[in-house]
Simulated scan of single mutants.
Amino acid sequence: MKPSVPCAASLLLALASGVHAGELEWLAGHWCGQRGKTFSEETWMAPRGGLLVGMHRDTREGKAIGFEFMRIAQQEGRWVFLAQPGGGAVTTFPAEHMARDRVVFANPAHDFPKRVIYSRPDADTLHARVDDGCDDGKAMEWTWRRDCVAPPRE
């Protein structure tokens, strides 16, 4: 299926962003929430030395069902998201667009996802979306609260 023109254009228009100290500070923290029986947590260390280190964990009914190691690093004058779902091989997503409380990372050559988007609609909420590169295409989304309380251990 051929992508729509706006989608294709958005993938091709990478807006290189110069790296500035503190521009991803808003991502730092412990974020978590529950959807159905799945409890998700994502933790990001504050940027220091050109690097943010993050991790994600999903648990259901007292058992771990998934995890991911993540980094956002300065490379060649821009931020790059490096994902390792399940601790596997690294996939890189260079920053395509950065704004206050929102960052879009994209790798149009990757199968899925092609984009990783983080946004913070308010001080205590973090929203994450991975998608096929189109605003109206295949996507997975999460919304977390800062420092929420984990369910009791089983």
Score class of each variant (00 low, 15 high):
Ala123His: 14
Ala123Gln: 13
Glu61Val: 11
Leu24Cys: 08
Arg115Phe: 02
Arg115Asn: 02
Arg71Gly: 00
Leu15Val: 14
Met45Asp: 10
Pro85Tyr: 00
Thr92Ile: 03
Val103Leu: 03
Glu141Thr: 09
Val104Ile: 15
Arg57Tyr: 03
Thr143Phe: 00
Cys148Gly: 11
Thr92Tyr: 04
Glu141Asp: 14
Ala95Pro: 01
Phe81His: 15
Gly50Tyr: 02
Trp31Asp: 07
Glu141Phe: 01
Asp136Val: 11
His110Cys: 07
Gly88Ala: 13
Ala139Thr: 01
Asp132Cys: 06
Gln34Glu: 08
Arg78Cys: 04
Glu76Pro: 03
Pro94Glu: 01
Asp131Leu: 05
Glu96Lys: 15
Thr125Tyr: 09
Val116Met: 01
Asn107Tyr: 00
Pro3Ile: 12
Ile72Glu: 00
Lys2His: 15
Trp44Arg: 07
Phe93Ser: 03
Met98Phe: 05
Glu61Pro: 03
Ala28Glu: 11
Gly36His: 12
Tyr118Ile: 00
Cys148Met: 02
Gly66Val: 02
Lys63Asn: 07
Ala123Trp: 15
Pro108Asp: 01
Pro94Thr: 06
Arg102Asp: 03
Met1Gln: 10
Ala14His: 09
Val80Cys: 03
Ala106Lys: 04
Leu11Thr: 04
Gly54Phe: 00
Lys37Ser: 09
Gly77Met: 10
Val149Thr: 12
Gly18Tyr: 09
Ser119Pro: 09
Gly36Glu: 07
Gln75Glu: 11
Asp132His: 13
Ala139Glu: 04
Gly22Ile: 10
Gly33Ser: 09
Leu11Ala: 12
Pro121Gln: 10
Gly66Phe: 00
Asn107Met: 02
Arg146Thr: 05
Ala99Trp: 12
Trp26Ile: 04
Thr91Phe: 05
Asp101Thr: 07
Ala95Ile: 01
Arg71Phe: 01
Phe112Gln: 10
Phe112Ile: 05
His97Ala: 14
Pro94Lys: 13
Ala150Cys: 04
Arg71Thr: 03
Pro108Tyr: 03
Ala73Gln: 13
Phe93Ala: 06
Leu15Ile: 10
Asp131Cys: 07
Met70His: 05
Leu24Arg: 14
Asp131Tyr: 11
Leu126Met: 05
Phe112Ala: 06
Thr59Gln: 11
Asp124Phe: 08
Leu52Met: 12
Met70Ser: 06
Asp111Arg: 15
Val53Glu: 06
His20Ala: 13
Asp147Asn: 15
Gly62Asp: 05
Thr143Trp: 02
Ala46Arg: 12
Arg145Ile: 07
Lys2Phe: 15
Arg145Leu: 08
Leu51Gly: 04
Arg78Thr: 05
Arg78Ala: 11
Arg48Ala: 13
Gly29Tyr: 06
Thr59Lys: 10
Pro3Arg: 07
Ser17Gln: 14
Glu41Gln: 12
Ile117Phe: 00
Leu52Cys: 08
Gly88Ile: 10
Pro152Ala: 12
Arg35Asp: 14
Val130Leu: 05
Ala8Thr: 10
Ala106Phe: 02
Asp101Val: 00
Arg145Gly: 09
Ala14Met: 13
Leu82Asn: 07
Ala123Asp: 15
